[in-house]
């Protein structure tokens, strides 16, 4: 099981990194979302994996999973929504303002030639 989770984290990270390195805003945002999943799952696993032991106290139950990483990840999930929303807004604003959704600064000469061509 640990192997499955670890490979999932690895694949999510790799996919996220590849998308983050793309040149347009939208794939970069998707890449960051994938990285967020990877990081959240990783943080979650710091409590180690356990099946069927939710941290809800019940009489007669002695074994519980580690609740602290869960609490931390819970807020991280909500905050990452806020961050995604802000990044999307910035990307959208940049696109609407300049009709260009590149994440890198474009060399100025390129713009003038493309304008000249069109």
């Amino acid at each position: 099981m640990e192997l499955l989770v670890a490979t999932a984290i690895g694949i999510l990270t790799a996919g996220g990194l590849y998308l983050v390195l793309r040149l347009r805003t939208f794939p970069v945002i998707l890449g960051m979302s994938l990285l967020t999943y990877a990081v959240n799952v990783f943080l979650f696993t710091t409590g180690r994996l356990s099946v069927g032991a939710p941290p809800i106290l019940r009489d007669g139950v002695e074994v519980y999973t580690d609740p602290l990483p869960q609490a931390l990840v819970l807020t991280a999930i909500v905050i990452s929504f806020g961050m995604t929303a802000v990044v999307v807004m910035i990307g959208l604003g940049a696109f609407l303002g300049s009709d260009d959704d590149h994440v890198d600064d474009q060399p100025e000469t390129d713009q003038s030639t493309s304008e000249g061509q069109s």
Binding site: A6, T7, A38
Partner: peptide, 25 residues
């Protein structure tokens, strides 16, 4: 190049978490 970076990063994340999960704190 990007695939290279991604694979390296992914492998590192995999290795770290796999190692981590099989050991107690």
């Amino acid at each position: 190049r990007d695939i290279g970076v991604a694979v390296i990063g992914g492998l590192a994340a995999f290795g770290l978490s796999y190692h981590f999960m099989l050991r107690d704190a």
